[in-house]
Design a protein around this nucleic acid. Structure first.
Lengths: 183, 183, 183, 183
DNA sequence: CATGAATGAGAATTCATTCAT
DNA sequence: TATGAATGAATTCTCATTCAT
């Protein structure tokens, strides 16, 4: 037996799902509230019981569905014991996979960020996290001590842009470029 | 004394300027024809003497103002005599400057490319040109012979993304990352 | 207590009524959607909940309000027992009355038929039906055996044109012309 | 050597020709001033040197190109010596031909008469003229003395409507209907 | 005489949002 | 909770008309 609250929560998520799909497909401006309601199989009016406006839908998606938490979790997870080079490859692969799995969100982010600072925030955070990771490895003597901030930005940007362009890059080759296997 | 033809040409350019500025600021969907007309200090109706539709305005900007020709010119210019490493830095700097000088266009490209293949074309072309350049240098023994395609994509993506995010990168450091100064 | 469905149906009819009146008064091109909405005492936007476009409004009127079915019914109704001459008068009078009762529709037909084949269809059908009726009467020996097709076209055109011009004709005299009372 | 005045007159007629053709093809409302100017191979502005407005064009066409004068001339021409029945056939045939030769004008009349009383005037005049002719023939004992007014309206309406519907009628049969050849 | 740039008013249509049911 | 009728404001676009050149 589902309680009132559970049902409401379910409906809310369903509306967010529908909105995300429609926004990704048509862009925020190109998607009408009616489109979203139709996709969720409800009437436009109902949306307004759950969200104040179309804009509120976008903001909620950006806030609640943002993959920044998952990214942070990913990058700060302990990678003890394995060689830094392999860990870096795992890390970037996980990031790439995250982007691929959230293609709709990535599309929304790219389209919705003109007026909203969300993407800048995301990229900043991502670069910072990768940079921090690189620093620890350099300190541990596992990686060559060059400019880790530039390296972080390079790695992050390259993976992100090529995934966004739907032309994913070979991550092993990418890491090999910056941190050649010296053997 | 300006002839009718000159005056018409001037007006056309003015309208394109206004449209570009407004599109960059608000996005294509967010900008109304009235916005553009107001920015150009004319009546909306006048726009239709010069362009068939708002969409035609976008297409014209992408076609006539596209910086792809300038990019191509830049990348294929003869760089004889100087060390490859320095030429690469010059090249990427020029590319970065080009993007900076055309910030509005870059914004338009990013916003307008959902339905239009222009950006994909641009990135593809850019990466190809940089890759071709790297190949010649590797052949000449000036650069280390690693995966030039991946290197090209990395360089291009990094410069482009960081410029688009308005957080330009240190290009010397970037090149130093991929092609360390061995001395 | 009116249900939602009934209310919607009522609104739909009301909009068609308003549209017919406005179209008849100003012609299809001369009538704006705003005119129709004002006549129906609603907002222009509401029209689009019920009809896809102004053109759809015209088509719906021509289809749903067309008097062709009633005309057919009229002409094919059994007229047994009475003298053909009187029946013919009754018939044309009923036709004339039908046109008079649907003056707005007649006006719409005349104005809207430039691009639409509705009127041609109507006249063709009308002439055919009257012709068929005349044939049966001639076969029965009730009317003089002259060219019934020409007679039908003559009768139909005369009644229609004079009614359309709002100068109705004396139908008894008209019939008397073609089928003189021989007594 | 054409004088100024001749050239102006020529241009004026050219514009009227173009306007008539375009009005007939698209209807008065459907034709834009630009359409007419294009058809006349001039610019819209020039039209306003010759006519005050689009409406003035319509009125001028209706007034100057109206075939009422030619109709009157036709109907009042002396038809001495020939049998009334044949004269009537000649008359209606000429009328029918007149309509056929002026199909554009007929179309304009039908489309333009909603707000303008021109067509009513035309039909009234036409019927009166035919009626007057019939009267003289009845007085002369050439035709049977039935209701000449109804007969006139019948003949006129039948020819006009069937020509307007582009399904011209057999005029000899039509006259034979009203005034049977008694031999 | 002729052009065509420019305007202003208005056209059809869409859509986020509200609200009675 | 859910519906869907209704609104009002905005949007893209058209067009008769004017006027400087």
């Amino acid at each position: 037996m589902t309680t009132r609250k559970e049902q409401a929560e379910w409906r809310r998520e369903q509306l967010l799902d529908a909105a995300l799909a429609v926004f990704a497909a048509k862009g925020v401006d190109g998607a009408s509230v009616k489109d979203i309601a139709t996709a969720a199989d409800v009437t436009p009016g109902l949306l307004y019981r759950y969200f104040d406006s179309k804009e509120a839908l976008v903001e909620t998606l950006l806030r609640e569905r943002g993959f920044l938490p998952r990214l942070r979790e990913l990058l700060t997870a302990g990678h003890t014991g394995r060689p830094a080079r392999e860990t870096l490859i795992d890390l970037l692969t996980a990031f790439d996979t995250l982007l691929a799995d959230n293609a709709d969100l990535v599309a929304l982010f790219f389209g919705a960020t003109r007026a909203r600072p969300a993407l800048a925030e995301l990229t900043g955070e991502g670069q910072r996290l990768i940079g921090a990771f690189l620093d620890t490895q350099v300190d541990a003597g596992e990686l060559r001590p060059h400019d880790t901030r530039t390296a972080a930005r390079t790695l992050f940007a390259t993976v992100a842009v090529n995934r966004a362009m739907r032309a994913p890059i070979d991550i092993t080759a990418l890491v090999g470029l910056l941190y050649p296997d010296e053997r």
